[in-house]
Design a protein around this nucleic acid. Structure first.
Lengths: 116, 116
DNA sequence: TACGATTACGCGCAGCGTAAATATC
DNA sequence: GATATTTACGCTGCGCGTAATCGTA
């Protein structure tokens, strides 16, 4: 069970259609189809019903949806607070520059804040 | 960012050692090393310090740890409720939430099955 | 015919394990 | 030398996209 699947599922639930959700999350429909099948199999429940026009959530799907939203939100909150807690940013800061110096180097950089 | 990485990170934090954590989660040490490096890179933050005897969390790591525990718990709860939502009566229920909104309220709840 | 989901199939990459290297005691 | 992490490297499986197939109106 993966957060990516939860994101996909939220998109499907909100769009009511695999095709629309696929566009929204930039993934091909077959991939989403596979994910939702796999998700249902992992949970041992049927999550949604196939309608001639798209899909619609059934009870278990609604339950999953609310939890999924909560979890995804928690995750985003977590990332945000960890980033802001960073007294010690790490890694090299790579930057591009619009114009190289004559010696082919980037001009010296000024003070840099955190990356968004 | 993946839940698996959060589980791994929790194990590392609690064991204080990559080797011990690796045994606990049944993964080779190098794999965990890669994961924690990747996690730190994704977050743009240094999470722990290498000691000659294992590793120890620094501030950002502690922040991540608490969030990670919360998220993993939420995920397990979610799986449980979805599984049990199969044939259970449903309706609005009060629920606890791992994190209050800024105004001190629980985030809005959706329809759910019963909680044990 | 048109729209949407599923099945089939091939490819690339992420994650894993083994093994070798590095570091600290 | 012992313990613990990191680097190197090959392999397998998962996730994705394309294309073909099925279902319904």
């Amino acid at each position: 069970m993966d957060v990516k699947q939860l994101r996909y599922f939220i998109a499907i639930a909100e769009e009511g259609s695999l095709s629309a959700a696929a566009q929204r999350v930039n993934v091909a429909q077959p991939s989403l189809s596979q994910h939702v099948i796999s998700l249902g199999r992992d949970l041992g429940v049927k999550l949604l019903e196939r309608s001639p026009r798209g899909v619609s959530l059934i009870q278990s799907g609604e339950v999953l949806l609310s939890h999924a939203r909560e979890i995804v939100t928690s995750l985003e909150t977590a990332v945000e607070s960890v980033r802001q807690s960073g007294a010690e940013p790490m890694g090299e800061v790579r930057r591009s520059c619009p114009k190289l110096s004559d010696d082919g180097q980037c001009p010296p950089s000024g003070p840099v804040g955190h990356l968004d």
